[in-house]
Amino acid sequence: MQVQVKLYGTLGKWVAGYDHRTGLAVNVDEGATVADLMAQLGVPLDKIGMVSLDGRLVGKATALRSGVLVKVFHPIFGG
């Protein structure tokens, strides 16, 4: 199945040629989780803060669904 992926902050550096305007279309195995997707892309899990699937915040062990938009965020600190 295929999912759409957007990598925020500087996470795009882990995927050669990543263009934030288009994001990525990635083929993953049925039953793959967020963590599996990150491993496939080569994005280290410890560089990731927040992940959402179609706008809903999820954990890294969450299973992906076909066609879902996966947004992957960096850690934040603010003020």
């Binding site: 500087t10 560089k47 927040m50």
Partner: peptide, 22 residues
């Protein structure tokens, strides 16, 4: 990671998408 890499690259504007997403 945040102060050494993300803030230099994007500034505090890196918060826009994250806070919007939540």
């Amino acid at each position: 990671e945040f102060s050494g890499e993300i803030l230099p690259a994007l500034g505090s504007a890196c918060l826009v998408e994250a806070i919007n997403e939540v």
